[in-house]
């Protein structure tokens, strides 16, 4: 017994070192697993508060840019509006309960953005208080940004599309061939689209959109254009470089999409299995 105590006293530093090292490695491994990194997160009141305080100052330097984006978006929306109202209005009766929009949008401001690491996260200034929850999609007027991973009361952490753990189901705009969008960790403006079958008509400059399969994003959210493509080693699938519409290094304001039918659809899918 005495020897054990002596041993513990003699090696207490090494033991403390090993304990803390195991703890930090545990956190590290968790952070490399999607949907597991719950504990170490900047979405708490202290770190979130500091980031939003800093962002308040930083925001002023980008106001002009954000304004231009808003004007562009308004222009596009106005042209859509006149386009739709000039068409003949459908006079068939629709029950208002079935007419409800399944998607609910919330606006939020990005208060921390990362893009130089391989696993990047974004912090926004809305949280569970504003109805945000895990697996809500995040977009800007130009294209997709990521998926809400974790929420606190006032803040939410988004797993950015610039994260090697994330893959989003997307498709070609021209045809319905789909694949999954991932990121290889190199260029923050170029993502990789994989598993597009060889039969798909892939042309440089074609637009990639989301395909609504994942229940997170509605169909038709723009993603990017095809920059480059090549067949994989088996000659059966394309690997496509996608130039993103979003400038991921400067995001500013985002929309968070809540799919009201998500739970219902998920239940139906799980019955199938």
């Amino acid at each position: 017994m005495r020897q054990i105590i002596n041993f513990l006293i003699k090696y207490k530093n090494t033991l403390l070192f090993l304990c803390l090292l195991c703890l930090s490695l545990f956190f590290t491994i968790q952070s490399h697993t999607y949907h597991k990194s719950k504990f170490i997160s900047s979405a708490n009141f202290l770190t979130g508060g500091i980031y939003s305080w800093v962002n308040n100052i930083d925001e002023y330097f980008n106001l002009r840019k954000y304004n231009n984006r808003l004007v562009d978006e308004n222009k596009w929306l106005r042209s859509r509006l006149t386009e739709l109202s000039s068409k003949k209005i459908d006079t068939t009766f629709t029950d208002s309960t079935s007419y409800e929009n399944p998607y609910h949008f919330t606006t939020a401001r990005v208060i921390k953005n990362q893009y130089i690491k391989r696993d990047n996260y974004i912090l926004i200034n809305k949280g569970s208080k504003d109805g945000l929850a895990t697996d809500h999609g995040v977009i800007t007027s130009r294209g997709i940004v990521g998926i809400v991973e974790e929420t606190s009361k006032n803040y939410a952490r988004i797993i950015s599309i610039l994260n090697t753990n994330l893959s989003v189901s997307v498709q070609l705009q021209k045809s319905d061939h789909f694949g999954s969008l991932t990121w290889n960790g190199n260029d923050p403006n170029v993502a990789q689209l994989e598993e597009v079958p060889r039969l798909a008509p892939v042309v440089k400059g074609d637009t990639i959109i989301t395909n609504g399969r994942s229940l997170i994003f509605p169909k038709g959210i723009p993603v990017g254009v095809i920059k480059d493509f090549k067949l994989d080693v088996n000659q059966s699938y394309y690997t496509i470089d996608v130039q993103l519409f979003n400038d991921m290094t400067n995001i500013g304001y985002v929309y968070v999409i809540q799919n009201n039918d998500q739970t219902e659809l998920k239940e139906l899918e799980s019955i199938d299995e």
């Binding site: 703890l23 490695l25 590290t28 952070s31 990194s37 170490i40 500091i50």
Partner: peptide
């Protein structure tokens, strides 16, 4: 905590 990087810096 600030960087959302798990336990990388701690280790």
């Amino acid at each position: 905590f600030f960087e959302d990087s798990g336990g990388v810096n701690a280790a």
